[in-house]
Design a protein around this nucleic acid. Structure first.
Length: 451
RNA sequence: GUGGCUGUAGCUCAGUCGGUUAGAGCACCAGGUUGUGGUCCUGGGGGUCGCGGGUUCGAAUCCCGUCAGCCACCCCA
């Protein structure tokens, strides 16, 4: 009959209690303030997009990770009656997978935006991935993007914005890895690897640091890349990592020279901003998302397997919506990745939440009188909770400890008659009788943030 | 998507060579008489042992499946 209902949230999704929420807000407040200081304006887009908008933008693996929204009512009945079995027959909408593609749609759709549209977005996205450490199926991204310009100023600004966020949050040891798609393509081509194997080679390259030279060569061999080619690729990479290699390539006229020049220009420009100390050229950085065309970025932090954020230039994406092609570049920070590291490192300042004053009511005080006092205290700017039940004073004070209220205001018949409360400091145990009008000043003077 | 580990009270876990009514600590509630908490004492509520199936006289315990969580890959934020 009545099956027990699971009280856990769905896989990879979480409930956030007050302590979690204040930490998230703390980070988001910094993100928002910094992004706005760079002149970015907010944009919010729907949770659900048409599948046509989402499909084909992220690469085949991305398409697999899209949450689809099942047809409803007649449409579903028709599809089922027709014996439809394909995913596309059962859904034509899906949950937002990132914030970049919705931005591209908006920019393609609104032709009256400023020439350089600088928008930030802080919204959840959904991926039907397998949860792991720091990886969820619902998570928040904090994006900044600039559309309408190929200038490296834009690339430098998005890098500067995310770097400034991390610095203001207290991070100092992160690296902002940079590479260029054209450089990667050139390397792969020079190694003699056919375009068909290019994507494969890039993925393997990406983990060079983890599995080492032998591991990469083995894995490429398993996937059908001859040892001569993979060896050449690894040699070229080692070269690319040498000091001055990027400048030499930029000075030449071979493949990737243009990309190298762009990267150097980006380093020079961003070097004037908050990203300066963090920029790191990493010729093995690949990034899986399909839409990147030029410089690509990723934020690496020592004690996290994944990245704190990533981004890059995607000059072809907006044009995929069938209108005018518009160049764009952006960066995305992962809120929960940042929170994870900040929690591990104890980087949060004291964050207060909950009542500053618990109003304890004795039996000879009416509810209306208590609410009247609470109202007066709230008018003084205090966060005030009234103990709702009728209970012994001891029980009420114990509850005040439970909710971490720094003060209890004890209200009995005598106090009501005199227009006072007995204000008890729950840390020191000191208690003074004050007129109601004096409580606000006393509490804010003595108040130390809880926790 | 691949491999491994785990799943007992709200939380952290004990209990498992299969054997009566499944335990602890913390948390919660109530008491230790009048309007004073954080300590202490006493008592109490709360669990279809993730779910489904199988083996057995008997399963939290063994087997299979499934779901969920964690870790390492893959990928990403």
């Amino acid at each position: 009959m009545s099956q027990p209902i699971s009280t856990k949230p769905p896989s990879g999704m979480r409930d956030f209690l007050a302590a979690d929420v204040v930490r998230r807000r703390h980070v988001l407040a910094v993100v928002q303030r910094v992004y706005e200081s760079f002149g970015f304006v907010p944009l919010e887009t729907p949770t659900i997009e048409n599948l046509g908008t989402l499909l084909g933008k992220y690469g085949p693996e991305g398409d697999q990770l899209l949450f689809r929204v099942l047809h409803r009512r007649e449409k579903l009945q028709r599809a089922l009656a027709a014996g439809a079995v394909g995913e596309l027959d059962l859904a034509d909408e899906g949950l937002r997978y990132d914030l970049t593609v919705p931005l591209a749609r908006v920019v393609a759709n609104h032709r009256d935006l400023p020439a350089f549209f600088k928008r930030y977005a802080i919204q959840p996205v959904w991926r039907a991935d397998r949860p792991a450490k720091g990886r969820f199926r619902e998570f928040y991204q904090c994006d900044v993007d600039i559309t309408g310009t190929r200038s490296v100023v834009a690339d430098a600004e998005v890098c500067g914005a995310v770097a400034q966020v991390l610095r203001e949050l207290g991070f100092s040891d992160f690296r902002l890895l940079c590479n260029h798609r054209a450089l990667l393509r050139a390397l792969v081509a020079e190694a003699g690897i056919p375009p068909a194997h290019e994507a494969l080679a890039l993925v393997v390259l990406d983990k060079l640091d983890k599995v080492g030279v032998d591991g990469v060569q083995r894995e490429l061999a398993d996937k059908g890349v001859p040892a001569a080619q993979s060896g050449a690729l690894l040699r070229l990479l080692a070269e690319a990592r040498e000091a001055g290699a990027l400048a030499r390539r930029a000075a030449g006229d071979g493949a990737g020279a243009e990309g190298a020049r762009e990267l150097l220009a980006l380093f020079a420009a961003a070097g004037g901003g908050p990203a300066a100390a963090h920029l790191t050229f990493d010729p093995t950085l690949a990034r899986g998302l399909g839409y990147y065309t030029g410089p690509i970025f990723e934020i690496a932090c020592s004690d996290l397997a994944g990245s704190l954020g990533g981004g890059g230039r995607y000059d072809g994406l907006i044009g995929m919506f069938g209108k005018q092609p518009i160049p764009a570049v952006g960066f995305s920070l992962g809120l929960e990745r940042i929170l994870l590291v900040m929690e591990e490192r104890g980087m949060f300042p004291p964050l207060g939440i909950g009542p500053q004053v618990l109003l304890c009511r004795l039996p000879d005080v009416t509810a209306a009188a208590a609410i009247g006092v609470a109202t007066a205290l709230r008018a003084q700017g205090l966060r005030v909770e009234i103990y709702a039940d009728e209970a012994k004073l001891g029980t009420q004070l114990q509850y005040a400890n439970k909710v971490a209220a720094p003060f209890a205001a004890i209200l009995g018949g005598d106090e009501v008659a005199a227009g006072t409360v007995a204000l008890k400091d729950l840390h020191t145990g000191e208690q003074v009788v004050l007129r109601v009008a004096e409580v606000g000043a006393r509490v804010s003077r003595a108040h130390l943030p809880p926790r």
